[in-house]
């Protein structure tokens, strides 16, 4: 008798399970069809770093102090600066990051004395070469401007 009870209960549990799945067929799908539509990125999203564009200067404020370079755990950042006539201070003339080594710790952003670094919202970065992960931030800023 116990066996029959087991069979009936087991069978009933299976039917309950099937009821759960069949109801889902009529529910709306949760898929976000990515290339057709995108989720809006979270405000805190951390992509690779990029320069902040300051309205006062219309450009970045990087003074090439090298703090970010020193703090970076994986030597992602290469920055070089030079003094120009228009600015009294040193300004970055070259700023490269190799994003393919980055661990997104954000030490560069936190420690930047001029707060000119920020995280970008970039996430579509797939490419065909290993070295395409090297990003020229200055060029990027100019292009976006």
């Amino acid at each position: 008798m116990g066996m029959i009870k087991d069979i009936v209960e087991g069978g009933w549990s299976l039917i309950a399970g099937m009821w759960v799945t069949i109801r889902r067929i009529y529910r709306p799908v949760v898929t976000v069809q990515y290339p057709r539509e995108c989720l809006d990125m979270s405000p805190a999203y951390r992509g690779h770093i990029e320069f902040e564009q300051f309205p006062e200067t219309g450009s970045h404020n990087c003074v090439a102090c090298g703090t970010c370079m020193r703090f970076c755990p994986t030597n992602v950042i290469k920055v070089q600066g030079e003094k120009t006539h228009t600015h009294s201070e040193k300004r970055a003339s070259l700023y490269f990051i190799d994003f393919s080594h980055c661990s997104l710790c954000g030490l560069c952003v936190v420690n930047c004395p001029t707060q000119t670094l920020k995280f970008s919202g970039e996430y579509e970065l797939a490419h065909y070469s290993r070295w395409d992960g090297v990003i020229d931030l200055i060029q990027r800023l100019e292009e976006s401007a």
Binding site: E9, G10, G11, S13, L14, A16, G17, W19, V20, T21
Partner: peptide
């Protein structure tokens, strides 16, 4: 509820 019906109570 769904999880339990689908998995926890499932005889298999």
């Amino acid at each position: 509820d769904d999880y339990h019906n689908l998995v926890t109570k499932n005889v298999i």
